[in-house]
Computed example of a mutant assay.
Amino acid sequence: MSDHRAPAQSTALCLAPFETSQVSTFSVPPGACDTHAHVVSASSEFPFAAGRSYTPPPAPEAEYLAMLDRMGMSRGVLVQISVYGTDNRYMLDVLERHPERLRGVAVVDAEIEDAELLRMHRLGVRGVRLNVLFGGGVGFDSMERLAARIAPLGWHMQFLMDVRDLPDLMPRMKTLPCPVVIDHMGHMPVADGLSAPGFKALQQMIGDQGWWTKLSGAYRISDRPDGYPDVTPWARELFKTAPERMFWGSDWPHVAIDPMVDTGLMRNLLAEWLPDDAHRRRVLVDNPARLYGFPSDITPDH
């Protein structure tokens, strides 16, 4: 069995994302949202954290917006990339320029000032991310304190974790006073099977605790490079557990992987996982609009 946890620390430059993508195999509905992507500035004004696990190439605002357009995505959610640590400046700069189209998930420590949380909220941040897989992030030690800080804002807590660890963490995580989002379908190998304790724990928390998860990162949990068919039962079972709490995300610019993947293929997997148009609309439009607070009466600025 392969282990899909994060790679060892390296400053070697990651592969750059492709500039072109597969065309869509289905009609992407208006208002569709990519709930998981990152931006990386080309400027030395935004230095990387010394303890990072990888070094990404530039993935700046213009390239990110062009990717959204190619994917047919009206909206997007930027997730603070781990290599910047708690320096959210570049992501916030991008959010400020696109208040109708974009939302954000920040990385902060538990000592952040209330005024800064409020400023982030005004700029479109709607959650914080805890990361125990890649260096540079904030881990479980801050979980309860951060949750208490963000709950009054209506924010959620997003976890980049391997849910093989979830059974041991459930007693703590069940008590969090805010919504919980799990990245990349739990970031554990699908080869472990649908009866694996980690997957069953994720299902339980989605079904009983009202958690959310992202139908993303198939290439991070699959052992099949030929279109990731082994992920299809996994994604369908998660959707069946709670259709109203599923999202889709591209995971662009696909850091720390080799070979590089086609972002269009990542979108097109939705047609395999969810053949029904109404189900895809729920995942792409309705669910993200509800959690991230996108207004329903505007045309996104693209």
Rank of each mutant, 00 (worst) to 15 (best):
T175D: 14
A37G: 05
A62E: 15
H121F: 05
S27D: 14
L169T: 07
G227V: 04
P152V: 04
D286R: 03
A106D: 05
C14P: 02
P167T: 13
K174M: 13
L117H: 13
V231H: 07
L176P: 09
R119H: 15
P58H: 07
V125K: 00
A8T: 11
P179G: 10
T299F: 01
F48E: 12
H4L: 12
V190C: 04
D141W: 03
H184L: 05
P253S: 10
G72C: 03
M91E: 07
D277E: 14
M173Y: 09
V105H: 02
N88R: 06
P243F: 13
R129K: 14
I112M: 14
I221P: 02
V180W: 06
R172L: 15
A242S: 15
P253L: 02
V125L: 14
P47G: 15
A271W: 05
I298C: 10
H302A: 09
F134N: 08
V107P: 00
D109A: 14
R290N: 12
N268E: 11
V39A: 08
G217W: 00
L133V: 11
P29F: 11
P17H: 03
T263A: 12
G210Q: 08
V105G: 00
D301G: 01
C14F: 10
P229M: 12
P275V: 11
Q9W: 08
R126G: 07
S216K: 02
P17G: 01
I298G: 03
F46S: 08
M71E: 01
M170H: 04
Y228A: 06
P197A: 10
L166P: 06
Y228K: 04
P288F: 06
L166V: 07
F48H: 11
E244D: 15
L118A: 15
G139S: 12
D258R: 11
A147V: 01
R129L: 14
A235R: 00
S44A: 15
V77M: 02
P29K: 09
P288T: 11
G249S: 09
S195E: 15
A37H: 02
L146E: 05
E111D: 15
G124D: 13
T232R: 06
A191S: 10
T213W: 00
F199Y: 07
D262L: 09
W155I: 02
Q209K: 03
A201K: 01
M1G: 12
A110T: 13
R164T: 11
I182R: 01
T175G: 10
R149Q: 05
S43K: 15
R281H: 12
M185Q: 11
A218Y: 01
D141H: 06
P152A: 09
V283P: 00
G72M: 04
P295D: 13
H98T: 07
L194G: 09
V94S: 01
H302Y: 07
A8L: 13
D208I: 06
E61H: 06
E19G: 11
S250V: 08
F140M: 10
D208S: 09
S21Y: 05
N287R: 03
Y64E: 03
A8N: 13
L130H: 07
D141V: 02
L169D: 11
G76F: 04
P56H: 12
L194Q: 04
M91R: 00
G127A: 12
H156Y: 10
A235W: 02
V190H: 00
